[in-house]
Amino acid sequence: MTKQDRAVRTRLALIRSAAEQFEARGYVRASLAEISAGAGVSSGALHFHFANKAAVAEAVEHAAARALRQVAVRGRGGDGCALQRLVDVTHHVARLLCADVVVRAGLRLNAEAVAGRVRDLRREWRECVHELLAEAERRGELAAGMPPHRSSAVVLAATTGIEVLAREDPGWLARPSLTDLWHLLLPCVAAPQLAGALDPAGTEPDHAQADAGGEADGALEAPGRVGLALR
């Protein structure tokens, strides 16, 4: 392994360890000593990569943003029924949150506006929902009297609420919970002719949950290659 490879691995280990500490203890109580110990490196190695705890938190948010952005882009760029793709992408985000502590910690840090940062980590998700529902309207998939801005507000409120509730009870992110949500929403949002054709449980197989973990790991990249923000 080259020196550069070791440096990249160390940085990624520090980001994951930091995410675990931020999730378990919160930003204020998490210490750099605990983060470096969790990554199996010295404090000196941590400071080689990050100037302070705020810089570590920033890296966690960047990594979470990349993973979430990949999911949103996938949903917007797919084929077929826009409403079904919206259902599928919510299940995919839920699997991602279940599988990867970096994504969970990144969203929590962003919501708490740690160290005064102003990045909007869920922006891409909002845009994804808006675009899919606008596409659904163009395709005639939305119910009468349910314009995209109204249906978007409902979907965003519901999915953001589930993410917040899941911080205390991960069961909110389970497939049955999201399926129940879509069982309630789809009859209100979808055109009547689509009601029986949409699958509120999502169209991806159960084993996709394991794949989500691999995708999230791929979001941890070397400095300069980590993507932008979501909320």
Results as ranks from 00 to 15, higher is better:
Ala158Asp: 09
Ala37Tyr: 07
Arg16Phe: 02
Asp199Gln: 09
Ala219Leu: 06
Asp120Arg: 06
Ala45Trp: 02
Leu228Glu: 10
Pro176Gln: 08
Leu132Thr: 00
Arg119Ile: 07
Leu132Pro: 00
Leu142Asn: 13
Val87Pro: 07
Ala208Tyr: 09
Ala212Phe: 04
Gly77Lys: 01
Gln21Leu: 08
Ala33Ser: 15
Ala24Trp: 03
Arg126Ala: 08
Val155Arg: 03
Tyr27Gln: 01
Val102Arg: 09
Arg16Ala: 08
Ala45Asn: 13
Ser17Phe: 11
His130Arg: 07
Ala157Ile: 05
Ala136Asp: 10
Ser31Phe: 10
Leu184Met: 15
Met1Asp: 11
Ala157Ser: 15
Arg150Asp: 09
Ala57Asn: 08
Ser151Trp: 03
Lys53Met: 13
Arg6Lys: 13
Gln84Pro: 01
Ala153Lys: 12
Thr10Gly: 15
Ser152Thr: 05
Gly161Glu: 05
Glu127Ala: 14
Ala59Leu: 03
Thr160Tyr: 13
Arg117Cys: 02
Ala105Asp: 02
Val155Leu: 04
Leu220Glu: 06
Asp120Glu: 04
Leu83Asn: 02
Gly224Cys: 00
Arg95Ala: 15
Leu32Ala: 14
Ala157Cys: 14
Ala210Met: 05
Ala136Thr: 06
Gly145Ile: 12
Pro200Ala: 00
Ala136Ser: 08
Ala59Val: 00
Ala13Met: 04
Gln70Ala: 15
Met146Ser: 08
Asp120Pro: 03
Thr159Asn: 06
Ser177Gln: 10
Ser152Arg: 03
Ala94Arg: 05
Leu181Cys: 09
Arg139Asn: 15
Thr10Glu: 15
Leu109Lys: 02
Leu228Thr: 04
Ala72Asp: 06
Gly26Glu: 03
Asp217Asn: 09
Glu141Pro: 00
Ala195Trp: 13
Glu204Ile: 00
Thr10Arg: 14
Val87Ser: 13
Glu124Ser: 09
Ala39Phe: 11
Glu131Asn: 12
Leu12Asp: 12
Gly224Trp: 02
His91Arg: 00
Pro223Lys: 10
Glu58Ile: 07
Val71Gln: 14
Ala99His: 06
Arg150Ile: 13
His49Met: 11
Arg126Phe: 09
Leu220Met: 08
Leu228Arg: 12
Gly171Asn: 14
Gly26Tyr: 03
Ile35Arg: 05
Ile162Glu: 04
Asp88Gly: 07
Ser43Trp: 06
Ala99Lys: 10
Gly78Glu: 05
Glu23Leu: 14
Asn110Gly: 13
Thr179Leu: 01
Glu34Phe: 12
Ala72Cys: 14
Arg175Pro: 06
Ser151Met: 06
Gly75Lys: 07
Arg66His: 07
Leu14Thr: 04
